[in-house]
């Protein structure tokens, strides 16, 4: 009899714990906003950028209607990102610029907006550097995504011919723990560029091979095209005709199904 009770009591407690009281329902507009953010992220994950833009706009409106500047900022950043992927860079710049000076957004959101704007200003390095410096200042010392800022700064440095500065930044990036795969691959790719410039061919080859492995895992065609463009350049510098042919073939195959600015130069 008591044995039964001993078994029944934990079972009852377990059922009560699992059952529990239902969660208090959230307000309808907040639910709509959060559902739109989830849908937008899902669309982004599946590469449906037009759908993502639609959902980000929906989230933006929903958050704006409840005076939630944090949610609104996330929605604006997501929308700008989707618009860039769709080629609507001017609209993205307009949205990001409207966030930079608005102190109703948190410093982190403004830092992210400034960083995204710097990405769009690569053609004008001075503007990009200024935006990058502002993003770094807004993000602060305990910035959780400083590797992206360092990588972007290294990219600008390589673009400007400052290979030594780029190398120092990239060494710091690659030493950081918990680096996202995309950023590690980018740092390796830039490091390969620096090594090739310095004439360290073996190091350059090792870096670009590591970058290609990561980029294949990321399955981002633009990154792979960039890697193989570099690999072909490396092969030409190293006088490795076999590698040059192979890189060319891989590049041709990628460019046949994916159009990018790097492809148009080949």
């Amino acid at each position: 009899m008591f044995k039964c009770l001993y078994m029944l009591l934990p079972a009852t407690l377990l059922l009560a714990a699992c059952g529990g009281a239902p969660l208090a329902p959230k307000p309808a507009r907040l639910q709509a906003a959060e559902a739109a953010v989830l849908a937008a992220n899902r669309a982004t994950q599946s590469g449906a950028d037009a759908d993502a833009s639609h959902y980000w706009r929906e989230a933006w409106q929903a958050y704006a209607s409840i005076d939630d500047w944090g949610g609104q900022g996330e929605a604006r950043l997501g929308l700008a990102n989707s618009l860039v992927r769709q080629g609507e860079r001017d609209e993205a710049v307009r949205i990001l610029a409207s966030m930079r000076g608005n102190e109703l957004f948190s410093a982190d959101l403004r830092a992210r907006a400034t960083y995204q704007q710097a990405l769009l200003q690569l053609a004008t390095p001075d503007l990009a550097k200024a935006s990058l410096a502002q993003a770094r200042a807004l993000c602060g010392a305990a910035c959780g995504w400083v590797a992206r800022l360092d990588n972007l700064q290294a990219r600008l440095a390589v673009q400007g011919g400052d290979y030594a500065g780029a190398g120092a930044l990239l060494t710091r990036v690659l030493a950081a723990p918990g680096l996202p795969g995309g950023e590690r691959a980018h740092a390796l790719r830039l490091m390969a560029e620096v090594a090739l410039h310095d004439g360290a061919l073996a190091d350059a080859r090792q870096r670009i091979d590591a970058a290609i492995v990561l980029d294949r895992q990321l399955a981002e065609p633009a990154y792979l095209v960039d890697d193989y463009v570099f690999l072909r350049r490396y092969a030409a510098a190293a006088g490795d005709e076999v590698l040059r042919t192979e890189a060319g073939q891989r590049l041709q195959s990628l460019c046949a199904v994916f159009s990018s600015a790097a492809c148009s130069g080949n």
Binding site: V37, N41, L77, Q116, W145, R148, R155, G182, E183, D226
Partner: peptide, 28 residues
């Protein structure tokens, strides 16, 4: 579906979408 995807065991099989905007890579 959103609720189900966040419950066991589906949450182990599906990658949950983030609740904030994705941060673009510095390589874009």
């Amino acid at each position: 579906l959103d609720g189900a995807s966040q419950s066991w065991p589906l949450k182990n099989w599906m990658q949950p979408p983030a609740a904030s905007a994705p941060m673009p890579d510095s390589r874009q």
